[in-house]
Design a protein around this nucleic acid. Structure first.
Lengths: 238, 238
DNA sequence: AGCAGCAATTTGTCCGGACATATTGCGGAG
DNA sequence: CTCCGCAATATGTCCGGACAAATTGCTGCT
């Protein structure tokens, strides 16, 4: 329920089509209506329809071929597309993030190098565990810009992502997310928090959230036990 | 040097702009010419210019803001965008993939589940090591569709990716790549091939290359030593 | 029956224009 | 000098149209 009326039309068309697809109105591999049909159905121009279909294709939901048409692409099954910020928001659906605030920290040399911020800069520090159905899937350290200190104070744990709630509370928008993915071994902290064995393989994802002016709003370091988490994505032809 | 003349104009514009940016004609953070200026310079419509800029933005090279303009976004520095198949091709630049063919294999239950293909299907199996400056960065197992057996026979090790050379030899096009990224521990094979210690953290990337009709052309399983490899990407606002 | 070739369909590329909205700088009011 | 507001600027959204290129099915010929 983002914005019913003031959202762009291609976004509305994309949302309706996506809802129809996931609802099963079109079987996997089934032909979607052609662009001209969609133009009539939604009373929009071909530009708007193509913009909507472009989004769905970026999400990996549909596959298009010149001369052939547009078909639903269930692909490998249940994947996390993550080609779009709005998609990343849905990723956390079904999980709960239980966090604790730790107040303000100043980045030392080690932390600064680890998350890529200038040494000496101050951040609001949180840590917590994300669970799905009670099973922990991630141990996260989150560093939030000090400008958001007040908004952070009255945040409650819940299913949404942290920056999603911060965005609604303060009104800023995330324009870009940079990710670094690497593999590490479980230390004593991960053993206790995630219930894995010592030196178990851990997928480490560092996310850097930036707003439209390039300011770093939030940095999160998530540690996922490898046997419970795989990062899936797809790359389209350009 | 893909196609000089028959490529779409927005592709040509994007290539020229990208070349100018990486050549340093625009400093990091510098303002790019406006869309109308680019329209005049390249004698194309605004549609073509915007399509070119859309590509560069997907690659993470530029950042655009309504009312403000387009600026070069060096961002976090040297990243692997991988928002596009053509970008994935450049990823291997500077590295060498030395492989050995192992003939035809039939997927057993374990292999089929590991790479997501039907049990009993036949594949051409290769294995090799990708090095950058002599240092091994990946141990790869590659499974190629049996239709490409002949093209595979006269392939020589080199810097290009495998499917890039196969594409030129056989004429097919990769339309989509699905990736699964996870973390594992080094076994004896990785210890010998990559020179890491036993039970060292390893980043495992399974890539599934599909052509336009959805046929699986190639599957690669790459094991990257964690201390020498980080997977970087970015996600744009949609 | 089999095959070649044409025609219809469908998406890709490209144009020109129009208005909306966010940003920025300038100038005038206070 | 400061601040408000307007105008210029730049990108975002949207329209209608046109032709190109790939696919598919049909038709007619052998």
């Amino acid at each position: 329920m983002a914005r019913p009326t003031d959202a762009p039309r291609y976004q509305q068309v994309a949302d309706e089509l996506r809802a129809a697809i996931v609802a099963g109105d079109f079987a996997d591999g089934a032909q979607l209506p052609t662009e001209s049909v969609l133009c009539d159905r939604y009373s929009v121009s071909r530009f708007t329809v193509r913009e909507a279909l472009r989004k769905l294709q970026a999400e990996g939901l549909i596959k298009r071929r010149r001369g052939s048409g547009t078909v639903v692409d269930g692909g490998g099954g249940l994947r996390q597309p993550l080609s779009d910020v709005s998609e990343l928001l849905q990723y956390a659906a079904g999980s709960v993030f239980d966090f604790r605030p730790h107040g303000r920290v100043v980045a030392g040399a080690a932390l600064a190098a680890g998350i890529g911020v200038p040494p000496g800069s101050a951040w609001m520090y949180l840590s917590g565990i994300r669970t799905i159905g009670g099973a922990p899937v991630a141990l996260s350290d989150v560093y939030v810009h000090t400008d958001l200190e007040k908004a952070l104070a009255d945040l409650q744990p819940g299913p949404e992502t942290l920056f999603e709630r911060l965005a609604r509370a303060t009104g800023f928008r995330i324009a870009r997310i940079d990710q670094d993915i690497s593999a590490v071994l479980a230390g004593t902290r991960e053993v206790e928090a995630l219930g894995v064995t010592r030196r178990a393989p851990i997928l480490k994802i560092i996310r850097c959230y930036k707003d439209e002016s390039g300011r770093i709003v939030e940095i999160s370091v998530s540690l996922h036990p490898a046997e419970r988490f795989t990062y899936s994505m797809h790359i389209d032809q350009g």
